[in-house]
Amino acid sequence: MAELKFLGYLVDKAGKRSQEVLLERPRRLRDLLPSPFPEQDIIILINQKVGNLDSMIQNGDRVVLMPMISGG
């Protein structure tokens, strides 16, 4: 299983706060997300490392997708 977690307005875009997906083979992150999904001003961390929508995801990965916020 790979775990996807969404923060901020990306929860609305994904329609959920988190999701677990069973992957038979590594998949591009964007293929696991609803379309369209925001591409600008977002941060993607895969196992705490910076990734992008084309990063390959496999079982065991923890992916966090969050907006760039600016701390008030």
Partner: peptide, 10 residues
């Protein structure tokens, strides 16, 4: 700005 709460905790 409360959107930052969960974000900062994460």
């Amino acid at each position: 700005t409360m959107q930052a709460f969960d974000w900062c905790n994460e």
